[in-house]
Amino acid sequence: MSRFGQGDGPTTIEDLMGGGLMSRLDRLDVLSRKIFSGKVHGERRSRRRGQSVDFADYRPYSAGDDLRFVDWNIYARLETLFLKLFLEEEDLSLAIAVDTSPSMDWGGPNKLGFCKRLAMSLGYIGLVNQHRVSLFGFDGDGVNPLTSLRGRRRTREMATWLLSLSAGAPGGMEEAMRSIALGRRGRGVLIVLSDFLEPDGYDAGLRYVTGGGDDVFCIQVLAPDELDPASRGLSGDVRLRDMETGEDCEITVTPALLRTYRERLDAFCNGLRDWCTRRGLGHLAIGTDVDMEVLLVEYLRKQGLLQ
């Protein structure tokens, strides 16, 4: 029987992402439901109308418009001038925020270690596709950023940074989200990796990143010890000590209590999912025992984050 709540995180780059996985990730790309304007021309279509070959829309002609874009076929049919608008291809800003609060450094497999591996994989996909990748570690001590990475050669730098992440002070999501939202110079895809078990609630923090136009995706990471504590050795009369607040909760594990806990956990996850859905955010709750390749290739593709 595994020890309840005990698990180790990755210690090497190979632990973060093996070679086999790396080769399979080369075929994936980050998909945004929104089209973003970037700093330089990239491989991604932007909402900004530009000079690409992809038709976007029509709009009535106004004085001063470039006559090269007038659709003369429509003029011949309707005798009204319309301009053809084209999408412009731009790069994508991919931001990955990793929760490093003490509650994340728990579980078997360890939640923080799982988040590091997932952030590594997502960041690698971004780098491979020439996106502008930024990483943030946040906890009660503040935000630890690694910004503006582009290209496959920055992979090692990103991995080293991820390996150096460790659990810090409790809480800090609200402040961190506010800081990340304000510090975002461009707009793009923001992926938040956390268990969202914030003592003060997650909604205050997430509200900062919903208004900025980023395509936000919340990946809720939970350990099997949280999903099914009885099977992970939680039994009898125990005193549970909160890693964030230090608060003790004395319980006698009974089937009824486990049933109620499971109901509360489902309600919490459903509450987060509904909150995200109502505000246009993506949400996925995942256990740390899931295979990383399955997660990336199946779940995240089904959720529309990757393609």
Binding site: G107, D195, L240, M243, L257, Y261
Partner: peptide, 22 residues
């Protein structure tokens, strides 16, 4: 006999609400 063993946990938030609910 009722000496409880102490176990660290990521959050007691759900446990508190569960016991209160029960």
């Amino acid at each position: 006999k009722l000496r409880r063993r102490t176990l660290p946990i990521s959050s007691t938030m759900l446990w508190f609400s569960s016991t209160a609910d029960l």
